[in-house]
Amino acid sequence: MAGAHMDVTDVAHLARIRLTPAEEQTLGRQLDQILDYMEQLKGLDVSGVEPTAHPFPLVNVMRPDEARPSLSQDEALRNAPAPANGLFMVPKIVE
């Protein structure tokens, strides 16, 4: 088998994780090994098996539509590095 390959640089960028070249090497190798396991699993016949989105056999977990008190504005902004006018200030957003 040719061996699966994942572009670690690209994935790290998508997840906003900064990696050193050494980390990229190690993680790249490990991720490729994981992908190889997946390739092996693809060989299994799972046509009769239901996909499992969750290990617990539980459905329809819901709450009634009732509004409850929220945090105060001060409390909500306590972690904000730069609150102003009740807002979470961030560097200028350009689309």
Binding site: A67, R68, L71, S72, Q73, A76, N85, G86
Partner: peptide
């Protein structure tokens, strides 16, 4: 979550 779904509240007051 139970935060109110309303429009026009002061910023960051319907949050949890």
């Amino acid at each position: 979550c139970g935060c109110a779904n309303t429009f026009g509240s002061p910023p960051n007051t319907n949050v949890c």
